[in-house]
Amino acid sequence: MSETIPVATRLELLRTMIRIRAFEERVGELFLRGETAGSMLHLSVGEEGAAAGIALAMQPGDTFTTHHRGHGIFVARGGDTQRMMAEIAGKITGYCRGKGGSMHIADMSLGHLGANAIVGGGIPAVVGAGLASKTLGQGSVSVAFFGDGAMQQGICFESMNLAALWKLPVVFAAINNQYGMGTRIDRASATLDFAGRARGFGLEAVEVDATQPERVWIAASALIERARAGQGAGFIVANGYRFYGHARKDKSPYRDPAEEAEGRKRDPILNQKNLLIGEGLLTETEYEAFWQAANLEMDAAESFAKQSEWPGLSTMFEDVYDPSSPPPVPVEERLNRVLGGAL
């Protein structure tokens, strides 16, 4: 299998997963210290193999949407960790000027059409992006990243049908971490054959082990290039485990401790490290160097976020409409009109 994957990519998978984990652990610490904006922070620790494996199989110009657990995917797609962290902290220097936070990071210049706090909410946009790509001859593929939970939303199936019907350059990527919040997948779905469901819609579908990032990359590459070539939309389900709770503070009392221990043993980073060391492609020292670099990067991201300013109050009225038209009238101004004078 490893013959089909370049050595540079194999190392890059590992480096990317380490950066994702370093990022997630760091924002998790900031969250626990009350230094992030908002009550919700969903970490993808344990799921890095899915994010890195699929994201690195994409090409520049490809577009994507993510679910609420999307930091890792964007780190893997080239997201600037400083602006990401600033966004998560609610600062003006963040990707979305502090308006979006952890669950709404986006960067159009990198094809990130947006993270979403509505389960399934970002899926149909990739059908549209696939349509635009096909209509305008852009040559790009659009990938929807979502959790197993979104597999029970009607919009997911409406989107799959359209993408298959119109043979769009689209790939649906379900990251199956076994749980949607506190609900194990077998309590949410009568069938766990998600790939089979996708096949029912006429999609080319594969199921992979997300803790083996190279397998993810190989499967995703095949689907993405097939879609790019106009041969039809694809579906990949990447099975892994959510190491933390649903949100950072959730201790997952609904999970069996033995299952958790077992799940956390299936670590995509350690798997990839051992694979590469076993083949003589990596040394312990190089592995440590990956971590050091990642931690330094996150130090810089953290201080950038900390030193950044809060958005000014008036910025809340910006970005509702295109800047060519006036912003919404503040409530206070409406009061002034009624009363005359300043409040």
Partner: peptide, 29 residues
């Protein structure tokens, strides 16, 4: 006197804490 209305702003709710707090009525306002 005319009827007065104090409400949330005509915007989606922003995440950043100062913006969120500033977008809805407070006791002071």
């Amino acid at each position: 006197e005319p009827i007065l209305r104090l409400s949330g702003e005509d915007i989606p709710i922003p995440v950043s804490p100062p913006l969120e707090a500033g977008s809805v009525p407070s006791p002071d306002r």
